[in-house]
Amino acid sequence: MGTIIKKYEPKWSDRFYLVAILQGMMITLKHFFRKKITIEYPDVKRQPKPGYRGLHRLNKHEDGKIKCVACGMCASACPADAITVIPIESPYEESRPSISEKYAQSEERFPGTFEINELRCIFCGMCEEACPEAAIELTEIYDFTYLARKQAIMDKESLLDIFDKTKNGNFYLQEAK
């Protein structure tokens, strides 16, 4: 049993249209006085929701040591091939607590070079998922631009800087303050 949809037959009064037009104009008038949804971007910045995938950062331990153990998981997980990790021997003296015992042996490795090409990156968040040390994370920063391709390749230092900028909660909330 299907439903029978009656064809719309305009009533005699509908044919004057003027009423409908006035109704329509009242609707637009209501919108005129509504709160505007425009965000005036450079002055006011949109607050991304939690889980937003923006610019990367490299996390640090409490004591300031780099969490990354240069295992290369992120680089191999990356579908865009945006990450380059070149491991070197760890400069840290004492061994660090690893969050996953499985990769405890990787403590001796250390990212000598860690570069992310933000132009290649598709911000899928796979690197974040793959990292056994929770060392790489995507932050809420969305307005980053570059004047040259070279600048788009974020090196280790700048990624660590991003961590400093974002570790105390929302970047844009802090900026607004």
Binding site: H31, R34, T38
Partner: peptide
């Protein structure tokens, strides 16, 4: 401006 306001925008300001 009015068109923007009618569409919940701000228009050129």
């Amino acid at each position: 401006r009015v068109s923007a306001f009618l569409q919940d925008r701000l228009g050129p300001n």
